[in-house]
């Protein structure tokens, strides 16, 4: 088994390397991928068409917004998939005694957490809201926001974190996030345009067609952030308690 594994890995490795001889060099500006019409369009026309200086956000949430919608659905599937596989309902006997109980970590850790938590959350919200202009966006901000609740659970115990973010609430938030994203696309349909064609919303959003696209990107990024926050916390709480959701690590 080991030998055949090694053999097939080496064959695949050679296959992959053999293809690189007609690949562009590192940092080549004229490679088809870097100078092709698609990439040039994104770089040259994004700000003109969407007024978003961060091209990555524009490509993510607008040009390839359909992809990103499914990406959010992937996160959502992972969250409910973990619940479907792992979650056990009912009696919560047989909790190992050596686990740290609901009191969470020590005093020092708790004080530090309570000091830095507001800043983490504020920064996460900034990352979500400012994703058009600087590196960031819904996924990044959502993960930070989710991490803040995980930190809360680590420091004060899972029960404390669950009082902020109960299981029901995580599911509602996760579904709400996708609902915002898909609903925004459906709104475009209702306004008589293609799915996720944000330019159709310029009659209800201020600032013309380009700003409608910009604002819509913010809206869908908020949806993404909600789902990611909820699912990250749900993943942590289920995995750390083997699906019992009673006591954390």
């Amino acid at each position: 088994m080991k030998f055949f594994g090694l053999l097939s890995v080496i064959i695949v490795g050679f296959l992959l390397l053999s293809a690189t001889k007609d690949f562009p060099n590192w940092g080549d500006e004229d490679s088809p991928a870097n100078s092709g019409p698609v990439s040039s369009f994104y770089i040259e026309k994004t700000e003109e068409k969407t007024k978003v200086p961060n091209m990555v956000t524009a490509v993510l949430a607008d040009y390839r917004g359909y992809d990103t919608m499914f990406e959010t659905v992937v996160i959502f599937i992972a969250g409910i998939g973990i619940i479907a596989v792992l979650r056990t309902y009912g009696s919560n006997e047989s909790i190992p005694k050596n686990q740290v109980g609901d009191e969470g970590a020590g005093l020092l850790a708790r004080m530090t957490c309570s000091l830095i938590l507001p800043f983490i959350q504020l920064f996460a919200l900034y990352v979500v809201a400012h994703g058009h202009h600087s590196p960031g966006g819904g996924f990044q901000g959502g993960v930070m926001l989710g991490a803040s609740y995980i930190l809360l659970a680590l420091a004060y115990g899972l029960a404390r974190a669950k009082s902020c973010f109960s299981e029901k609430r995580t599911l509602v938030f996760a579904a709400l996030g996708i609902f915002i994203y898909v609903g925004w696309g459906v709104l475009c349909l209702v306004m008589g345009s293609e799915f996720l064609n944000y330019s159709a919303l310029d009659s209800i959003l201020p600032g013309g067609v380009e700003m409608a696209r910009s604002h819509s990107m913010l809206a869908v990024e908020i949806g993404v952030a909600l789902t990611v926050t909820a699912i990250m916390f749900s993943m942590f709480s289920n995995l750390s308690t083997k699906g019992r959701l009673d006591k954390g690590l």
Binding site: V38, Y42, E44, V56, E71, V74, V85, F139
Partner: peptide, 30 residues
């Protein structure tokens, strides 16, 4: 356009990272 890196691979990989995290999470649960 030569002053800016190609944005498309970054977007694609953001998607791939998310997919990777989701697969890993689900696989850990299993």
């Amino acid at each position: 356009k030569n002053k800016f890196a190609n944005p498309l691979p970054h977007v694609l990989m953001l998607t791939a990272i998310v997919v990777g995290v989701s697969t890993l999470g689900l696989a850990l649960a299993i």
